[in-house]
Structure formats: structure tokens, C-alpha cells
Amino acid sequence: MSDVLNLVKEYWEGHFKKLLIDDSELEEQPLFMRDEDMEVLKRKKNQLNFRDAKVLKNIIHGQVISYEARSSREIVDYLLTMEFLIIQKKKIYLETQQQARRAVIEGGLLIDDYLVQGEGSCDQKLGMNYIHKGLKSEKNDRFSNKRYGYDRLEAIKYAERWWNDYNPAYKNFTDDCTNYISQCVKAGGAPMRGNPDRNIGWWYSGNQWSFSWTVAHSFRWYLSGSNKGLRAIEVSSPKELLKGDVICYDFNGNGTWQHTTIVVDKDSEKMPLVNAHTTNSRMRYWMYEDSSAWTPSIQYKFFHIIDGTTT
């Protein structure tokens, strides 16, 4: 398997070095590079230039998930880890992303490589029609009279600990973006409420959870409407967000919210750097222009988590 991983490593490191480090252009698109991958690389390069940021070094790691030999071809599903050491003015930070990809090898040569799963693929069937019902009286809600403070440091510590791993105390979902963010916010001290009604509040208990805990669309609408328990206010600019705050994404701009991230740092321009699951990411620039799910119609919601009481 080391030969396979070496092929992948050389392929991606070569293209990243040429486009992002040397700041040159590919003379022509590699024959088997998918258009979406090429567009992602171009958008990432343009984003870095716009931010006056530069990749100093990139490191590629690969981990084989499955292997199948088909006649003269080898089909390899693998986890690609991309590390970018970025400098922007006086700030230097390490951005990391992971992608589930498939490589096709023939005669010892890489002839195809493509993304298996990316952002925006979260299953929204459950919770798509979620209407926030938590505004009604919930007299039996045992969390409803608690005061709480949102500990941003604890939320960030959790986000950093589990950005590339899965806490065994919670179910691991294939589309894990909002489940991960909910865990981070809970680690910051935000109180749960609504159990056992999946349509009410925001909660996780044993083998049950609310739609708002795991579904990006539901979580976005919960944050917009909640006036007790976990609460947030929507702000107009990402610069207004603090560490531990949340960004929601509608990649297609059609009203379906598909992704959620948590702010873990700011860049030199005070813009958010975020962590996320599904495509596991750490210290990623908040706009997600380097995502295959990004479209020019993308919409964002910026939520500032607030301290307070559940009453």
C-alpha cells in the first residue's frame, strides 16, 4: 500500500506546490483531474491572494480505507490529509483538511482520483420541515430555570480535541457536522432542553437526540428562534463573531442549510478560522470557497452564542 500512498502524495503535493506555493499556473489541467477539483484549487489560490496570505509549506498524508484489485486496475479508497502552513501578515497558522477520496491505478500509474464525500451531502430528510416549537411553555423541562455561562475556552478545547476524532460518548454519524458542533457548544456549558420530543429544543440523551442536535437545517432554525436554553443572536458580519460562535451554510442558496462550523480562531484581518466535521477541518477559512460544495449562491448565517438564563 505504500506505493499507492506515495503516488497520491506526489500527485497532490506537486499540484499544491505549483499553484499555492510557487504561485504559478498549471500549463494544462491534468487529464484525470476532475473539473470540480481544479475549480477548488483555483478558488483557494484566489482566496489566499485576496487575503494577502501565502502557503509556506504543504504536507500530504494518506491512509488506505479499502483496496480492491479489478483486472488490471487497483481501486483504492483513502483518507487524504492536507496540511497547509499559512502566513498572513504576522500570523502563522496550520490549516488542516481531510477528504475521503478514491484513486484508480493502472500499470503503476495514477489514472483517476476523485472525492467520495464532501460538505453539503448531509442527510436533511429528517428535520427539513423542522419548525422551532421551543417557544411554547415547557413546564416540565428540567433545564428551564437554570442559569448558565457559555465557557468559550471549554468549547474551543473540545473543538480542538475532537476535530479529527469521535467522542465515544456520542453516536458517530456519517454526516457528522452538526453533531460535532452541538457537542462543542454543550462542552461550553450550553444547557440542553426538550427531551424526549425530537421536534422541541436541543438535546442529546442516550440513543435519542433532537433534530436540531444533528441536522444542520434544524440547528440553524433553532438558533434563530430559541429564547431559552441554548440561545444565540444573529450578527451581520463574520468579524463580529467570537471564538466559540457558530456559522451555518446554505451552499446552494435555496433555503436548505447543509453545514455548520465553529469559530476557533481569527486571522490577521479578524476573520474567523473554523473547525468542522464530515470533511474534518481545522483552522479553515470560514468562507469555504475551497469546498466542492461551494457555489456563487452560497448563504451564511452568523450566530453569536450568548450567556444568560433559560427563562
Rank of each mutant, 00 (worst) to 15 (best):
V40F: 00
W286A: 06
Q117A: 04
W286N: 07
A232K: 04
V55M: 00
N195G: 13
N140I: 01
R198T: 13
L126F: 13
A187G: 15
G188Y: 15
S205R: 09
V64D: 08
S212R: 02
Y93W: 12
E83M: 01
L126R: 13
H132P: 07
G120R: 10
V274A: 01
A53N: 07
I247A: 04
V185L: 15
E36W: 01
D151H: 15
M1I: 13
R282L: 06
S291I: 07
K89W: 02
M38G: 03
V40I: 08
R51D: 10
V185R: 12
K90G: 10
G244P: 13
L56S: 13
E25V: 10
F32K: 09
Y222K: 04
G62V: 07
K301D: 05
A232G: 06
T278E: 05
G229A: 05
S121P: 02
K133V: 10
N129W: 07
Y300S: 02
I298F: 00
I105E: 14
I298T: 11
G189Q: 04
E28V: 08
Y11R: 13
K9T: 12
A169V: 12
R51A: 03
V185G: 13
T309N: 00
G188E: 15
V104E: 12
K90N: 09
R147M: 02
F302C: 02
L110R: 11
D165E: 06
K270Q: 12
G206T: 03
N167H: 10
K157C: 14
D112Q: 11
Y67G: 12
C184G: 14
D52Y: 12
T214M: 02
A216E: 03
K239V: 11
I262Q: 09
K239L: 05
I105P: 15
G62P: 10
N179L: 07
K171R: 15
V8P: 15
S24L: 04
N252M: 07
K18I: 10
K54A: 10
K146M: 04
W257N: 11
L31P: 07
H259Q: 02
P191T: 05
Y150I: 10
N275E: 09
S24M: 02
I247D: 04
E289K: 05
L7T: 13
N207M: 05
